[in-house]
C-alpha cells in the first residue's frame, strides 16, 4: 500500500520506478518507487537490512537495479554513458553509511578532493575546508588520517566531503549514527541549512525523533516494498498497523502527542 502522491504540478528531481534488486536469488527490493521533489527533504526509514542503503545507491547510480528505472534531473541514469553520469553526479552529494573516506588521504585532503577535481583555487579550498570542518564541530583536524578517527568523527568528515561542493541534490545515508544527542541535533541543523530550496535532500536514518524536525515527507520501506509514502501529518494520521508500530517505537507519535 502506498499513500498519495503529492501535487502533480510539483517538479521531481529524482524519480525511481519499479526498482527490483536481488542478491544470489534472494530478493531485497521488489517494485520500489521513489519521488523526490524540488525543495523537499525526504526521510527514508525502515528496519535494518531492508535495503535503504541499497536504494540510496541506486538513486545515485552506484548500483544498477535488476529492473526499474532511476531518473535524476530528467535524465534516465540507465541510458547515460560514463561522462553523462558524471555530469549528473556533479549535481549530487552522497554521504555513505560506512563513511567511505579515502584512507590514503588525510581529513583535509578528503574534504578538499571534490573541490580540487573542480579546479577551485588552492587558497579558497583551504578556507572552505576549514569552514566546513568547523561547521561539523571538528575544527583543525585537517592533518589527521581517517584511521585515527572514531566512527562519529569519520561520519562528520564524510558529511563535510559530501557537501563541500554545494551540490543541489544531497543524499545522506544515516548521517547521525554513532553520534551523541547534542551533536546529532547540530548535524540535522546543518543538513537543514545546507538544503537548497532549488535542490532536494534525502536522509536515510533511524533517529526519527530528530528527523521529524527536518523532513517534509517520508518513505517507509518494509519487506522490500514501500509501505508508506507521504507527509509527516499523513504518517501520523495513518492507521496502518505496521506504520503505527514503527512510528510508535521510534517515538514519532510520541512527539506528536
Amino acid at each position: 500500500m502506498s499513500v498519495s502522491i503529492r501535487d502533480a504540478g510539483q517538479e521531481q528531481l529524482i524519480v525511481a520506478t519499479g526498482l527490483y534488486k536481488s542478491f544470489g536469488g534472494e530478493p531485497i527490493l521488489l517494485d520500489v518507487g521513489v519521488e523526490v521533489f524540488r525543495g523537499r527533504i525526504l526521510g527514508i526509514i525502515g528496519p535494518g537490512g531492508v535495503g535503504k542503503s541499497l536504494l540510496m545507491k541506486m538513486l545515485a547510480g552506484l548500483v544498477e537495479p535488476d529492473a526499474g528505472d532511476v531518473t535524476v534531473l530528467g535524465q534516465s541514469l540507465q541510458s547515460l554513458n560514463a561522462s553523462g553520469l558524471a555530469r549528473v553526479r556533479d549535481r549530487m552529494g552522497f554521504l555513505f553509511q560506512n563513511y567511505a573516506l579515502f584512507d590514503f588521504m588525510d581529513v583535509g585532503q578528503n574534504i578538499a578532493f571534490p573541490l580540487e577535481q573542480m579546479g577551485v583555487p588552492k587558497a579558497e579550498i583551504t578556507r572552505r575546508v576549514a569552514e566546513r570542518l568547523a561547521e561539523v564541530e571538528l575544527p583543525g583536524i585537517e592533518r589527521l588520517f581517517p584511521n585515527e578517527l572514531a566512527g562519529g568523527l569519520k561520519k562528520r568528515v564524510a558529511l563535510a566531503r559530501a557537501t563541500i561542493a554545494g551540490a543541489p541534490i544531497l543524499l545522506y545515508d544515516d548521517p547521525t549514527a554513532g553520534l551523541d544527542p547534542v551533536t546529532s541535533s547540530k548535524i540535522f541543523e546543518l543538513i537543514r541549512r545546507l538544503h537548497r530550496p532549488d535542490g532536494a535532500t534525502v536522509i536515510v536514518g533511524h533517529d526519527i525523533d530528530r528527523m521529524v524536525a527536518v523532513c517534509d515527507e517520508w518513505l517507509l520501506l518494509h519487506e522490500g516494498a514501500v509501505l508508506f509514502r507521504g507527509t509527516t501529518e499523513e504518517g501520523r494520521a495513518s492507521s496502518h498497523e505496521v506504520l503505527k508500530t514503527f512510528f510508535m517505537e521510534t517515538g514519532m507519535l510520541g512527539a506528536a502527542a
Partner: peptide, 18 residues
C-alpha cells in the same frame, strides 16, 4: 580491493570521478 570493499571506489564514482 580494499578500496572496493570499503566503498572508496563507489565514493570516487559518487564524486563523478571515473
Amino acid at each position: 580491493g580494499t578500496m572496493v570493499v570499503t566503498e572508496q571506489v563507489d565514493a570516487l564514482r559518487a564524486l563523478a570521478i571515473e
